[in-house]
Amino acid sequence: MEVPFAFLVGVLFASGLYLMMQRNLLRFVFGLLLLSGAVNVLIFTAGRLSRGVPPIIPEGLAAPAGPVANALPQAVVLTAIVIGFGLIVFTLVLVLRVYERLGTVMTEELGPALVRSPDAREEP
């Protein structure tokens, strides 16, 4: 089962990185989304895929009865998804603010937009 997933990770990485190299910041964010998805699938696959039962210990037992799915990658991926979600939402809000304040989301126009802006020399 792991081999097709390895290819899937490769495809996701490639498309994510391709999008991240675009000049449009929004595409960069989408690339980031794909990339974080790719990493999550990678971790999940790294924990070995099995059609196991959920890793829950039945009542009255101290250990699971039979073989169960590996719970650690699931916990790790869940945490990574949450973190990735937060980071991407923040990045989206940042891109939105950049668009409002600088009037562009194209990376090569950001610098010139900053120089042109009336408060270019504004100091904190």
């Binding site: 910041l25 940042l94 891109v95 603010r97 950049v98 304040r101 600088l102 990376t107 950001l110 610098g111 937009a113 900053l114 802006s117 408060d119 270019a120 504004e122 904190p124």
Partner: peptide, 9 residues
């Protein structure tokens, strides 16, 4: 501020 946003990105 604009400079912060530009650097922040």
């Amino acid at each position: 501020s604009r400079a912060q946003l530009e650097g922040g990105i």
